[in-house]
Amino acid sequence: MNIFRLTGDLSHLAAIIILLLKIWKTRSCAGISGKSQILFALVFTTRYLDLLTSFISLYNTSMKFIYIGCAYATVYMIYAKFKATYDGNHDTFRVEFLVVPIGGLAFLVNHDFSPLEILWTFSIYLESVAILPQLFMISKTGEAETITTHYLFFLGLYRALYLMNWIWRFYFEGFFDMIAIVAGVVQTILYCDFFYLYVTKVLKGKKLSLPA
């Protein structure tokens, strides 16, 4: 464990909690892409099956349960509890165009052709593009609530911190996982446009609105 990975995990946890609280407190999931949240639930489910097979640490196990629990609670709130506030007309990204090719890629490019490893690889690839429906929805509505931009900021920051974690681990431990690194770079690059808008607008107190 190093400072980049710890702050990365805490940033990820912060993002997940911010979104959960936003929906719970405002009793509304306006502006939130349910499709992205389903993809995240799928990412955690396929990645954390090793909860059943191996124990790494209390921290590792408890964080995995928290992530999975929050992900499903968020999906439940969007599609059941606060369904009336779900903006399905703007959440129209064709996720099947993501899931199917990535499923194929996970079979072709992985570290080990075993079920758990292929599912882990699928999860890594899927996470790198899981935010696309959310970013697509914001581009369609042309704006995002400020609390949603904070959610996206911490979510994007977490993988950027993981990139630093992998540099640290390569230098000090000689450890590197090319699949996670390449997917992590793609994932972080997808947030660059948002990061620019976040820093130049939201941090200056303006509302995040895209040129419609």
Binding site: R5, D50, S54, N60, W120, D177
Partner: peptide
């Protein structure tokens, strides 16, 4: 190989 198989990161 071994260290990749057991993924210790979240």
């Amino acid at each position: 190989k071994a260290d990749e198989a057991t993924h210790d990161e979240l």
